[in-house]
Design a protein around this nucleic acid. Structure first.
Length: 558
RNA sequence: UGGGGUGUCGCCAAGCGGUAAGGCACUGGAUUUUGAUUCCAGCAUACCCAGGUUCGAAUCCUGGCACCCCAGCCA
């Protein structure tokens, strides 16, 4: 799909001004800085597209940096997954970094801070630190350890690093202002002790780990980042970001700019909640096709281009938002409508016997892979006297305006003949199990004479069709905003029990015999489907990415 | 008056003092061997509210209101 229009947003306007003013040597350097503590979701895609997109459009560069300062939550599994997701989305980083690469620099800068009496070792417990911090409306008060001498702080901090103290017994704090109206400035903790935890990059070589606020600004500065883009909840941290850089002898002072997170209707976006969905088995894993993760969307059949298009349509601002699913759905439909070859698949089979078609004959009918794009070629479709159609395409007592198959009525078999239903066969309990039909041999590739046949339905030839499982997905939650705090309820209470419907007796046309995992098709009149990444070869599993637009469904609802 | 933000169509979102872009959704209608696609038409006298400045205000000023974020040794 085409992504031609270059977006405009307030961040790009800031950059335009900076460039015009000759700031940063007229360079633009950004970074995407995930913590490897989970899989990336579509909200991260916004940050990725923003950061890498700006770098591309301004002839700048963008780094991938893992913000790995909390070893107890992180795992190498996540760093590998994140790298692949970024590349899959279509981006490549200039430099790959880990915040842990800077642990020594960070430590040295902390020593500088101590030497200038701008940081101190505090023996207060976590609980007491909280007490001393004050509240949103009342100022905090100084720790009794705040006035330790530089020498003592230097000694203590070094011994913290050397592993002489237990976890939680001491922290290093920046000495700023316990009465600041901005809580982040009330002597924030910048180092804590984590002894013996195995860090995925640095092993057990460190006993102290720097905090986010302290790490992030310095990492940005060391990499020469010009514009440090992050989400709105860090607005209050910006004064702290700037404070550290002002105190320290760093190569540059990047500009932090905040934008609003992406929220999508009928799903949740926080890593904690997504992690819970996985660990509590509400879904099959991080790549469950119902998940808003990049991995889930990929397995569902979304393309990188459709996701990039979505992010572009949604824009970048500072206002809170909840985007409707319809936007995402339109993005993938637009892409797949243009690029997915057409196939036929019968999801709820109903046997049809063509009584006037020779029993042993199999015809190979020509059908195009795309009605609007001849370049996608043609395929052969076997036709015989025994077919399957979808149960929904026959009605013994049709509703008004129904234009599919009815008793005594005619319908077009897509890419084939017009048939008429002559007889309904039912089982003992009255279920329709078969239709006896007759075909009009003069209707292949042309309309019948003297009468109009409005309906067109899809089908497969029974003998050649391939058995398949099909997974139909719906929204994971029944409420558009499962996060919104509604009297005592949380997102668990809105999990949609029908978010996955497994159909296990489906037939797909024989041309679907050598499909690669992830390959996408339009099953005509049903929707877009892809072969599941975990599909086994004996019985393929197709995931429905999205339905076709369905005005008939709208009519029947009225 | 704790601090920091945000308020333009159902949902996103342009707009930056010269008279409300666009997309999605929705509603009609045309073409169609997918009730798909495509096409064509419609869809904010109005920008949270109230004052004010101005020839002119969504844009500037004043005062309200609503909503979001912040009290991790998480990021």
């Amino acid at each position: 799909m085409t992504e031609k229009t270059i977006p405009t947003n307030f961040i790009r306007q800031i950059i335009d001004k900076d460039l015009a003013a000759g700031k940063n040597n007229k360079k633009v350097v950004t970074r995407f800085p995930p913590e490897p503590n989970g899989y990336l979701h579509i909200g991260h895609a916004k940050s990725i597209c923003l950061n890498f997109g700006i770098a591309q459009d301004y002839n700048g560069t963008c780094n991938l940096r893992f913000d790995d300062t909390n070893p107890s939550k992180e795992d190498i599994e996540f760093v590998d997954a994140i790298k692949w997701d970024v590349q899959w989305l279509g981006f490549d980083w200039n430099e790959l970094h880990y915040a842990s690469d800077y642990f020594q620099n960070l430590y040295d800068f902390a020593v500088d801070l101590i030497k200038e009496d701008k940081a101190y070792v505090d023996d207060l417990s976590a609980h007491d630190i909280r007490e001393y911090r004050g509240t949103l409306k009342e100022p905090g008060k100084n720790s009794p350890y705040r006035e330790r001498t530089v020498e003592e702080n230097l000694d203590l901090f070094e011994r913290m690093k050397n592993g002489e103290f237990e976890d939680g017994s001491k922290v290093l704090r920046a000495k700023i202002d316990m009465a600041s109206p901005n809580i982040n400035l009330r002597d924030p903790t910048i180092y804590r002790i984590r002894k013996g935890v195995d860090h995925h990059q640095t092993g057990t070589s460190w006993s102290v780990y720097p905090m986010y606020d302290y790490t992030h600004c310095i990492s940005d500065a060391l990499e020469g980042i010009t514009h440090s883009l992050c989400t709105l909840e860090f607005e209050d941290h910006r004064p702290l970001y700037d404070w550290f850089l002002d105190q320290l002898d760093v190569p540059c002072h990047p500009q932090q700019i905040e934008f609003s997170r992406l929220n999508l209707e009928y799903t949740v976006m926080s890593k904690r909640k997504l992690t819970e969905l996985v660990t509590q088995k509400h879904v099959d894993g991080w790549d469950d096709p119902r998940m808003p993760t990049i991995a889930g969307l990929r397995r569902r059949g979304f393309t990188p281009a459709s996701l990039r298009e979505f992010i572009q349509r949604v824009g970048v601002t500072k206002s809170d938002n909840i985007v409707e699913m319809g936007v995402l759905e339109d993005c993938i439909r637009t892409d797949l409508n243009e690029n997915a070859p057409r196939r036929m698949a019968v999801l709820r089979p109903l046997k049809v016997t063509i009584t006037n078609y020779p029993e042993d004959k199999v015809e190979q009918l020509d059908s195009s892979n795309h009605p609007q794009n001849e370049a996608m070629g043609k395929r052969k479709l076997p036709f015989s006297n025994t077919l399957y159609i979808d149960q929904n395409d026959f009605a013994e007592e049709p509703p008004k305006k129904f234009k599919r198959l009815i008793p005594g009525g005619e319908v077009r078999l897509r890419n084939a003949y017009v048939i008429r239903c002559d007889e309904i066969i039912k089982d003992a309990s009255g279920n329709i199990i078969e239709l006896k039909c007759s075909f009009d041999e003069n209707t292949l590739g042309k309309n019948p004479e003297g009468r109009k046949v409005k309906g067109v339905i899809h089908w497969v030839s029974a003998a050649q069709a391939i058995q398949a499982n099909v997974c139909l997905y719906d929204r994971l939650f029944s409420d558009p905003n499962p996060d919104g705090n509604k009297e005592g309820k949380d997102y668990h209470d809105f999990i949609n029990p029908e978010s996955l419907i497994k159909l296990e007796a489906c037939y797909v046309e024989s041309n679907l015999d050598s499909v690669k995992p992830g390959e996408t098709f339009q099953f005509e009149r049903e929707g877009y489907f892809c072969l599941d990444a975990h599909s086994s070869s004996d019985k393929p599993v197709f995931n429905r990415t999205v339905t076709l637009r369905d005005t008939w469904a709208k009519i029947t609802k009225k």
